[in-house]
Design a binder for these strands. Structure first.
Length: 121
DNA sequence: TGTATGACCCTGA
DNA sequence: CTCAGGGCCATAC
C-alpha cells in the first residue's frame, strides 16, 4: 500500500463524500446525540477533530444522502439557534422535530438547557 | 494550482 | 437586539 491508490475499499481515484472519513466521523458524532438533546455545529466539529470547522459540520449534514437516519435536526447554530431562515421549510421542519422530542423552540431558538456538552458524551 | 462557495462563529458599531 | 464585516476550514470546479 505504498501507492495509496487501491487502498482499503477506495479504488478508482476520487474519494466520494459517502466514503469520506471526515464526513463519516461527523455523522457519527451527530448520530450519538441523545434524544431530547441538541448540540451545535462548532461543538460537533470539534468532536470530529475540526477545531474551527463548524462549516464543515454543516457541509457534512448537507451532504447527508436521503435514506440515512440521522438526527440532523439536533444540530443547531451557536447559542442554540436554528441557522435556517424563519420562512424556510427546513426551519419549520427542524423546529417541529425538536418539539416532538420535548425541546422548547422559541423565536427560532432553543433553551440553552437543551444543549448538551460533548464532554457528557 | 487557484478561485469560489457554504446547514458557521465571533466581534464591533 | 439588529446589521455588517472578517475569519476559518474543507469541498467543488
Amino acid at each position: 500500500m505504498i501507492d495509496g491508490n487501491g487502498a482499503d475499499g477506495v479504488s478508482g481515484g476520487r474519494l466520494k463524500a459517502a466514503d469520506n472519513p471526515v464526513l463519516q466521523n461527523i455523522w457519527d458524532i451527530v448520530a450519538m446525540i441523545p434524544h431530547g438533546r441538541v448540540s451545535t455545529y462548532g461543538n460537533v466539529a470539534r468532536a470530529a477533530g475540526l477545531a474551527r470547522g463548524a462549516r464543515q459540520a454543516g457541509y457534512a449534514l448537507r451532504m447527508t444522502p436521503p435514506g440515512m437516519k440521522l438526527p440532523w435536526h439536533r444540530v443547531l447554530g451557536a447559542g442554540g439557534r436554528i441557522v435556517f431562515p424563519m420562512s424556510s421549510p427546513q426551519h419549520r421542519e427542524q423546529a417541529r422535530r425538536l418539539r416532538a422530542e420535548g425541546v422548547a423552540v422559541k423565536g427560532g431558538r432553543v433553551d440553552s438547557s437543551a444543549i448538551v456538552d460533548l464532554d457528557e458524551l
